[in-house]
Amino acid sequence: MNKSCHMLIDYFNRTLTDVEMRQFEDHLIECPSCQEELMEWEMLTEDLPYESEAVEVPTDLKARVFASLPDESSKNENVMQIPVKEKSRRPLGVATSILAAGLFASLVANAFLFTEMQKEPDIAQSEIQLIGQSILAPEEGTSASAVAMLIADGDQEVLLLDATDLPTLSADELYQVWVIEGDQPYPAGIVQPNETGTGTVSHPLADLSGTWDTVAITIEKEPNLPAPEGQIILAGGI
């Protein structure tokens, strides 16, 4: 029992200061007994939200929420239509059922299958597994966002990245994807956003299936440098 353990209730009720909150979170990572106790409090209180009386929701709330989503309809149309135009439909049908069964994001997975089908139509029948995924956090001053997924297809691993709201670059700049292992970055593909700032890239990790745990996107002047030199736009653990 550490002195921090006594702060658990106040952590649960968010009455700690920001500094105390961070201290307790650090403590929580190392304290199995607090982790267990926190789960107990969550379990003991899980019925209580349902005690609430149903209140009428403002009729325009949903419209307001959906109006604040970035408009991605054009991206959805492009990606969804591409596979239909290409190759035979048979592998796609199988692919679709795999997607429905799994937790793949249809949008991103279709982009992946499209890329792979250009090379090898039967790829969609092989076993595709989602190993990990991550939302990359934007650096300050940008509204960009990206989802990174690590997918295993047989014994090949592929990093799949789907970015939106990327700021427009000047003619001599590009968006470089990196995977980072400890302090060592490795280039992992280039994102080429369309005019709306949206771009998808899939990059085979044949030489990169080490213990890397971070994905980042930077703005560079040259592709595939040994290390990033430009500004970081997005980064996250996977």
Partner: peptide
């Protein structure tokens, strides 16, 4: 997971 990948239809169902 579909919402996280920005599938509006799934997001709307959850919403």
């Amino acid at each position: 997971y579909q919402t996280v990948a920005h599938n509006r239809h799934s997001f709307e169902q959850l919403y």
